[in-house]
Lab assay of single mutants.
Amino acid sequence: KKVIATKVLGTVKWFNVRNGYGFINRNDTKEDVFVHQTAIKKNNPRKYLRSVGDGETVEFDVVEGEKGAEAANVTGPGGVPVQGSKYAADR
């Protein structure tokens, strides 16, 4: 997939743990970017499923997906693991 931007910061608008996807609002352009659970590179080690939490600040790359921009290599700011959704089960 073609990389559009790297190391972008954004805020998770919403993320559905059961369906495994959601949207991140970019801090720079204010665009909403699709995020799939497979794009989460550093999950919270205490969580079973990969997820990001609503309102969480994340860092990610933006790539060209089939339906427009989507997030890739999602981590917390500075490459730390994401916090994850409060609806995702703990280990």
Rank of each mutant, 00 (worst) to 15 (best):
Lys1His: 06
Ile4Ser: 08
Ala5Gln: 12
Val8Ile: 14
Val12Pro: 01
Val12Asn: 00
Lys13Ser: 11
Lys13Tyr: 03
Trp14Ser: 04
Trp14Lys: 03
Trp14His: 04
Phe15Cys: 01
Tyr21Met: 04
Tyr21Gly: 02
Tyr21Ala: 02
Tyr21Gln: 02
Gly22Gln: 00
Gly22Asp: 02
Ile24Lys: 01
Ile24Cys: 02
Ile24Asn: 00
Asn25Tyr: 11
Asn25Lys: 14
Arg26Ile: 08
Arg26Glu: 02
Asn27Gln: 13
Asn27Pro: 05
Asn27Cys: 12
Asp28Leu: 02
Asp28Tyr: 01
Asp28His: 02
Lys30Thr: 11
Lys30Cys: 12
Lys30Met: 11
Glu31Met: 09
Val33Cys: 07
Phe34Met: 03
Phe34Asp: 01
Val35Tyr: 02
Val35Met: 10
His36Tyr: 08
His36Thr: 04
Gln37Lys: 13
Gln37Trp: 11
Thr38Lys: 08
Thr38Met: 09
Ala39His: 06
Ala39Arg: 08
Ile40Tyr: 01
Ile40His: 00
Asn43Trp: 09
Asn44Val: 05
Pro45Met: 12
Pro45Gly: 12
Arg46Ala: 12
Arg46Ser: 12
Arg46Met: 14
Lys47Gly: 08
Tyr48Phe: 12
Leu49Lys: 06
Leu49Asn: 06
Arg50Trp: 07
Val52Asn: 02
Val52Ser: 02
Val52Cys: 10
Gly53Phe: 06
Gly53Thr: 10
Gly53Met: 13
Asp54Cys: 15
Gly55Met: 10
Gly55Ala: 09
Thr57Pro: 12
Thr57Gln: 15
Glu59Leu: 12
Phe60Asp: 01
Asp61Leu: 02
Val62Met: 09
Val63Ala: 05
Val63Pro: 00
Glu64Lys: 12
Gly65Trp: 05
Glu66Gln: 14
Lys67Tyr: 08
Lys67Met: 09
Ala69Arg: 14
Ala71Tyr: 00
Ala72Met: 11
Ala72Pro: 00
Ala72Ser: 12
Asn73Trp: 05
Asn73Phe: 07
Thr75Gly: 07
Gly78Val: 07
Gly78Trp: 10
Gly79His: 08
Gly79Asn: 12
Gly79Tyr: 05
Pro81Gln: 12
Gln83Pro: 04
Gly84Gln: 04
Ser85His: 10
Ser85Cys: 07
Lys86Trp: 09
Lys86Phe: 08
Ala88Asp: 10
Ala88Phe: 06
Ala89Gly: 10
Arg91His: 08
